[in-house]
Amino acid sequence: MSLIAISADSYPQGLDIAQRTAAALGYGLLGRELLAQVAADRGLPQEQLVQALEETPGFFGMRTRRQQELLLHIQAACLERLLADNLVCYGLGAHLYLVGVSHALRVRVLAEPQQRAAELAALRGLPPERAAKLLERQDQERRRWSSQFFQADEMDPAQYDMVLSLGNLEPEKAVEIICDAAGYRKFQAMTYSRKCLQDKALAARVLAKLMPRFPDIRLQASDGTVVAQVQSLKRDQRKKQEAVRELASQVPGVSYVEVQVIRDYFGQAAQSGR
């Protein structure tokens, strides 16, 4: 009765661990296959969804706001699936948005560094020394990516319940440890943690809906009640509140919407200066 979110610095090695863990526990595996469905359901290009999970917004890359939107769609779909217990989740960034859900065991798998470099060298056709250099840069990029979109450092061990290094553990042993931990009472689901997960799923759903129109919106959900905060100029306030309320109410599962307006003082100053 729990969830396992696995994050790894090497996609193939992490996937291997996730698959073995799911098989060992008899859990379902929720992975990148979900993206195809997200793409179909929401009319989004699948390659862009993968890109959003992997790339740091750069000068030539995808626009930050668009990427944030895509990530929210992934997050909403993933959290929805996770409501059904007994799942291993991999490759969807779940370790970053399951924070605070007590029955989600968040595991970081550190790949064997040389193997990781070799993988990269093979993928890009690079000499191993160059690949090692590139890895360092990739780690920096991941750090930027996670702090940009989830305000957390993916590389920070404190983010996880457990960090396993494949450099020191056989994959079988690592899987065994994860399975052991998953049985630990601390990570069992309960009414409170399921409610946390539901609230997060609802918030992500609403946010994915609202974000395109209100990029600066922030919201929380609890028991079908959504509390949103938007910035607004004084004269647009009422209109904006109405728009947010109407849009949010269309999301299934929302029973009540409260919209708090934060006065946009900068905007106000800019307007009055004209």
Binding site: Q229, Q237, Q241, E258, V259, Q260, V261, R263
Partner: peptide, 10 residues
């Protein structure tokens, strides 16, 4: 509907 935030600054 709430009116707390917009009344607070003054």
């Amino acid at each position: 509907m709430t009116s707390i935030p917009q009344n607070q600054p003054p």
